[in-house]
Design a binder for these strands. Structure first.
Lengths: 137, 137
DNA sequence: CCAACTATATCGCATTACGATAATTCTCAA
DNA sequence: TTGAGAATTATCGTAATGCGATATAGTTGG
C-alpha cells in the first residue's frame, strides 16, 4: 500500500528551486553557444540527436521521439535545418515513407565546436549538479 | 598554458545526446504536470523561484535573474500570474522602484502538488542522471 | 485488394521572449 | 540641494515556434 510522501518544507522548495535554476543555467549556456553559431536550441538538439545515432538510422520520427515533439513539429524543425544546408533528406530504401536525415559537413563542424564547449561546461557543472541531486532523498 | 581538449569521439556525442535527452525528458514531465494545473513552464518556475526565496524578498528582478530572462520579460511573466490571481504585487517599502511578489493561497496549493510530484520524479531520475554525468570526465 | 495504420508534410493560430522605448524612483557628487 | 545618471519596472510591436487539424503517400494484414 502506498504511503503519502513526506510533507514539503521550505528546504524542499529551496532544493527544487536551486535544481531548476541550475538546469536553467545550463540551458541558457547552451542557448548562447548555439546562437553564436546561428542555431536555435531545438536545432542544436536535433543535430546532436542525429549525430548521436548510428549513420543512416536517424529519421524525422526519431528526432520527434528524442526531442519529445509531435512528429509534424519535428518535420518543421527539419525543414529549417534543410533550408540552412545543415541536413540532407533521403527517402529510406526499405520503407519509402521514412525520411533518413544526414548531417552535412557544415553541420558536423558546428556540432564539433558546440560539443566541445558543452562537454567542458558539463564537467564544470558536475560537482554542483551532484550536490543538488544529493539534496533529494 | 591551455591545452586543446581531447577530440570528440562517437561516444562523446552519444553521451551528450543522452544527457540532453534526459534533461528534455525531465522538462517534458514538468511541462505536462504544470499544464495539468493550467501553468506554463515559465509560470511554474517563477512561482517556485518566489517560493524558494525568503518571504517578502522576491522581486521582478529576482525572477529575471533566477529564470535568466530580461527584466522586462519577467515583468510580462508576472503580469500573467497576476491576472491569474496567483501573485500579489506590492511596492517595496524601502525602495519604491521595486515590486515585491507574494504568492496567493491558490499559488501555494498548486506549488505544493507540483513540488511533490517533481521531488518524486527527480528521485526517480537520480540514478540515471548520476550515470549520465559520470560519462563525462 | 482494400481498410486500417504509419510516417511525413502543410496551414493557420496562439503563445512568449525580445528589442526599443518610456516612466518612476533612487543615488551621489558638485 | 540639485541635477545627471543609474536602477527598476512597464508597454508595445515583432518574430519565432510548437501545436491542432488536416492532408498525402506508403505499408501491411486479412
Amino acid at each position: 500500500m502506498s504511503r503519502r510522501s513526506a510533507p514539503l518544507h521550505d528546504s524542499d522548495y529551496a532544493a527544487l528551486a536551486d535544481f531548476r535554476a541550475a538546469l536553467r543555467g545550463f540551458t541558457a549556456f547552451s542557448e548562447t553557444k548555439a546562437a553564436e553559431v546561428g542555431l536555435t536550441p531545438r536545432q542544436h538538439q536535433a543535430l546532436l540527436a542525429i549525430r548521436g545515432k548510428a549513420p543512416g538510422q536517424a529519421t524525422i520520427g526519431y528526432v520527434a521521439e528524442r526531442l519529445i515533439l509531435k512528429p509534424h513539429s519535428a518535420s518543421e524543425l527539419v525543414d529549417r535545418l534543410d533550408a540552412m544546408g545543415l541536413i540532407i533528406r533521403q527517402t529510406a530504401a526499405g520503407d519509402r515513407r521514412k525520411t533518413i536525415l544526414v548531417l552535412t559537413n557544415q553541420a558536423n563542424a558546428l556540432l564539433a565546436a558546440l560539443s566541445a564547449s558543452h562537454r567542458e561546461e558539463i564537467r564544470r557543472l558536475k560537482p554542483l549538479l551532484l550536490d543538488l541531486l544529493n539534496r533529494f532523498g
